[in-house]
Design a protein around this nucleic acid. Structure first.
Lengths: 361, 361
DNA sequence: TTGAAAGCGCTAACAC
DNA sequence: GTGTTAGCGCTTTCAA
């Protein structure tokens, strides 16, 4: 059977289409309660549902949003951003068109065209990880950047506060008593890695811990890369080795776990580790479960959608919103290995690790 | 500036709207080449793009597809299905509305209503893993089930061939010389786990390998669950222990790795392992990389979209398509440990484990 | 409290 | 080869 139209309902209820429209849209005013119920029943009886297409044409509002991403929907990294965005869209009665471009700019341009032709009411441009990107040509004003920033501004955006996150990670380690803290870094993703590194340096400075360049190593952002970087650290003379490691991400931390376990090192007894991302299937599945810094994907997705929809008032048309990365405490952080075993291990202990360090938690 | 309309282009080019429409839609017939280019230029000059909404209303075809899923977009499990579906949609000029319901049936019902109101041309109903589900009320005929089957039929569907996949996994192990092969199973996901188990039994039977119930253990589908199940296996008398393990999924296999490494067991020298899923961030990141059976997510997604769009002819309106799960050979399978080391390792085999046991399963 | 009618932007049947 | 026009299904102004 063909779709029921508003005129069918009108005929069935013995009223005009105007009345049906008024009833279906819950326009307060006029219309007696009796007519109301008559219309509603007729509608239900013939299974009528208004056509969003016709309504969209008439009102020039489609209650539809476009979400263009490089790959968030199809990779395991940042799906929660979608969840946040979707939830916000649904709560406000919007449907979302999702287009993963795979990073292909031709597809991206087509996507913008197609979404514009669809007259979406809002547009979100999302990346799978924090980066600074050129704003694609033709991107409508009012679009919101999610997990990325337009390099020349002009749009609102939301990204994780990686600097504060890096600081929080290191603070966690310092609070446990560590002073020799390595940072296993990467150069694959410059923005995030630089910011986290800044946070690392900031906390060392805060506590008067000298920076040892030998404790800053790099690798690719995989378990293999983390493992290789860790092995580099193990080549240091024993007293120079770290007692704790802050890893750029959880995958790299997983590599450290593998190497540590193979050498019989116990986590956290012999080595404390903090990761980053709180990545599903990685962080919590380690043994012991990994303490890490969570990327606020869900909240960023929700923020972006609410701002794009105009549901959340954000003063500035051209500002970057930094979202906090919470510490997820699990079991990979403990105090440094007891040093009584190596009484003569270093210089005067007050320079090495002031007892006060234990108290600043 | 407001959106340009077709009449603006017509005026600018000094032709009628019909002509513009014909040109924009590349309708061969009539229209001189000269007029054509004039129209095209006018359109480009004023930045005209046809409104999909108006076109949708007029033609009653929106070139839009709905994809309702439980959680595939927001979890790290099956994102490739989306990639396959999206690619197929894009290639055919369709845009996709994505709705993750989180498994909430009220949201699901709303989603079906909203998508119907949007007059989507096709609908895909997808699950994050292979299961049999009741078809939601109101689901339009012609919808396609992706990675799930409607319990009472009535719709086309595509699911992985888990039975053949299970068989392939075990065959891999048998080919390497193993005879004592355990199956670390789960009861969390009945359909897939039963099917894979059937494949396991099938191959044992094929090779006349007796079935040992002690080698069939269960756990939850996490690294922790896999680890616990493996430890149960290690409690068996030495000569009864498996030399190879087929794990229900890669996460459980990861748990086996952890326990094995902690005990100093080398993979694959002391123990061979085959997983299932070829899960990103899990399978390939193990050390050594895990041999596993891939779930054909991308191809299933593409299949579902093509069938839903009517681009791929599928005879039966009510059939389940089984998609092959390829073996991904990596480095976790090797020959069983040499048995010369324990010449008297088992007693008379017929008392220890009567061959008839193979038949009573 | 209700209805008639215009018109959103487009396509396509039909006329020229 | 090109133009006129009806109408897709709805909302909304205006009149009654």
């Amino acid at each position: 059977m063909a779709r029921a139209r508003i005129s069918d309902v009108a005929a069935a209820a013995g009223v005009s289409v105007t009345t049906v429209s008024l009833v279906m849209n819950d326009v307060e005013s006029r219309i007696s309660e009796e007519t109301r119920t008559r219309v509603r029943e007729a509608a239900r009886a013939i299974g009528y549902a208004p056509s969003s297409v016709a309504r969209g044409l008439r009102t020039q509002q489609t209650r539809t949003v476009g979400l263009i991403s490089d790959q968030i929907a199809t990779t395991p990294f940042a799906g929660d951003m979608l969840a946040g965005a979707q939830d916000a869209a649904r709560e406000n009665g919007y449907l979302v068109f999702l287009i993963d471009t795979g990073g292909d700019s031709a597809i991206e341009a087509d996507a913008i065209r197609a979404l514009t032709a669809q007259q979406v009411d809002a547009l979100i441009y999302a990346c799978m990880w924090h980066q600074v990107v050129p704003a694609p040509a033709g991107l409508p004003a009012g679009a919101v950047f999610l997990d990325c920033r337009p390099e020349n501004g002009g749009y609102r955006s939301v990204v994780p506060d990686d600097r504060a996150g890096g600081a929080a990670a290191v603070r966690e380690l310092v609070a446990a008593g560590h002073r020799r803290i390595a940072y296993i870094d990467t150069d694959d993703t410059p923005i995030a890695s630089n910011l986290r590194h800044e946070g690392y340096l900031e906390v060392l400075a805060e506590h008067g811990i000298p920076v040892d360049p030998a404790l800053h190593v790099q690798g690719e952002t995989t378990a293999r890369g983390g493992r290789a970087a860790f092995e580099q650290l193990l080549e240091l003379p024993e007293e120079q080795r770290p007692t704790a490691i802050f890893c750029f991400n959880d995958r790299m931390a997983a590599g450290v776990y593998i190497a540590a376990h193979r050498r019989g090192l116990d986590i956290p007894r012999d080595l404390s580790i903090v990761g980053y991302d709180d990545q599903q299937l990685v962080a919590a599945e380690q043994d012991p479960p990994l303490t890490t810094i969570a990327l606020p994907h869900y909240d960023m997705g929700r923020w972006a959608m609410e701002v794009a929809l105009g549901v959340r008032a954000e003063g500035d048309e051209d500002a970057t919103h930094l979202m906090e990365c919470p510490v997820i405490r699990r079991d990979s952080v403990g105090p440094p290995p007891a040093q009584v075993a190596k009484p003569n291990r270093r210089r005067a202990s007050h320079t090495e690790r002031p007892p006060e360090a234990a108290t600043d938690r």
